[in-house]
Write a protein that binds this DNA or RNA. Structure first.
Lengths: 116, 116
DNA sequence: GCAAATTGTTTCGCTTCCGTTTCAGTTTCG
DNA sequence: CGAAACTGAAACGGAAGCGAAACAATTTGC
């Protein structure tokens, strides 16, 4: 059974979640950064710069810079791949897992609060 | 009857919507910009810089700059309030309405495609 | 063994954004 | 009338983003 919603409900949900994030002072991530973060936390590892760039259809420097920023925020971490030292493996962090978990819970709450 | 979803579904929905936006080459809005845009299109007018700043709990220059960027993208427009010339009224545009409409439809589609 | 290919980062010039402060224009009100 | 209040924008130095191109480090394959 899939999830059904009308476009007006979908937009209202998005607005409420965005407002709660902004008002709560959470990091002001871009859509690209959000896509990268959620891909790292939802898709099975390993995650490489190249793989993420292909998944998002963006260039590699876009991934590098997003990892710089989210790394500074402790949302993800980087580690050299010991088997193929050209690769960088992107890993989850405790802080990032908590952030994503809170984010998901927030969506659920806002969805529940939606008017009919 | 409210909308029910599990956190894992909510996160997967968010990921799929973000991925489709990024891959589709849509403007890479930040959470703040998204919150502003949706507030303008979902909440009843009039919308002023001050009002939006209060709604998002951010400073006025944040709103001014976001309107600069989204104005350049033709997603919103600014007009001086003739009744109180200190105010700037933020208005919707045809392009912005189409963008928001496509966005909402995209969410609905991704929600429908979600695994159980 | 060594050129070619692959990976992720860095550099370039430029744009956008930040928070804070300052400013110009307008309205309010004593 | 004129001072105070209010609104949105501009100025400031700094941080972070962009695409394109060049770059080191590593692996592949002849």
């Amino acid at each position: 059974m899939s999830i059904s919603m009308r476009p007006s409900q979908a937009l209202r949900l998005w607005q409420q979640v965005m407002l709660s994030q902004v008002r709560g002072g959470e990091p002001d991530l871009t859509m690209r950064q959000t896509a990268i973060l959620l891909t790292i936390y939802l898709d099975p590892p390993p995650h490489t710069v190249r793989g993420l760039a292909a998944r998002l259809n963006v260039t590699k420097p876009v991934i590098t810079r997003a990892l710089d920023t989210m790394g500074a925020l402790k949302l993800v971490s980087r580690h050299r791949d010991e088997l193929d030292k050209r690769n960088v493996l992107v890993r989850r962090t405790v802080e990032g897992a908590l952030f994503v978990e809170r984010f998901g819970d927030g969506i659920v709450v806002r969805a529940h609060e939606l008017p009919i």
